[in-house]
């Protein structure tokens, strides 16, 4: 787990501005540089440094796989404390598991499964169930009200 990283004002401005999107123009880094009145190299150096120190996990597109026939669900497990590490390894070994959080509840492991077809969700769940011997609680999305995941740096 990384410790908080020190960011200066310019890092914060770049992060806050680019979370909403990246200019899709022929010279995008020049355009970003012009917003902050700095040179293009500075923008690139800063973004690279933020990737290296782990503040950014990615710099690129987020795909909406559901728009292309894929499927996503949120699933939960009640994992006995003494098996937590083992079950974490088993669950995360599936490339379809996009993220996985330990949470404060008897259902103490919550993870997102994303697959290329809706049928594969059930396959991944049944594999996880047979590997772990635990019941997977699948909580598919029925309606989406808001996705605004943007954080102030």
């Amino acid at each position: 787990m990384s410790n908080p990283v020190t960011l200066d004002d310019l890092d914060r401005k770049i992060i806050n501005a680019l979370q909403g999107g990246f200019p899709i123009v022929d010279k995008p880094f020049n355009e970003v540089a012009s917003w902050f009145d700095i040179d293009t190299k500075e923008v690139i150096t800063r973004i690279k440094a933020l990737l290296e120190n782990g503040v950014l996990s990615r710099f690129g597109p987020l795909y909406n796989s559901e728009r292309m026939g894929g499927a996503v669900t949120l699933a939960a497990l009640n994992v006995p404390q003494e098996r937590y590490e083992e079950v974490t390894r088993l669950v995360n070994a599936h490339t379809e598991v996009a993220h996985n959080y330990a949470r404060t509840h008897p259902l103490n492991m919550w993870f997102v499964i994303a697959t290329e077809t809706p049928e594969q969700i059930a396959e991944v769940i049944s594999q996880i169930e047979s590997e772990t011997g635990l019941q997977v609680y699948d909580c598919p999305k029925q309606r989406e009200y808001f996705i605004g995941l943007r954080l102030e740096a």
């Binding site: 996990s57 987020l62 995360n92 996009a98 993220h99 995941l149």
Partner: peptide, 28 residues
């Protein structure tokens, strides 16, 4: 209602293609 704080994060890979050019996922 219940509030579930996250205790630890084990994986946060975000949107990925499993192997190009197949289409995969989206980050929630």
């Amino acid at each position: 209602s219940k509030t579930l704080f996250s205790r630890r994060r084990f994986k946060q890979t975000g949107a990925r293609f499993s192997k190009p050019p197949e289409i995969e996922r989206r980050c929630t």
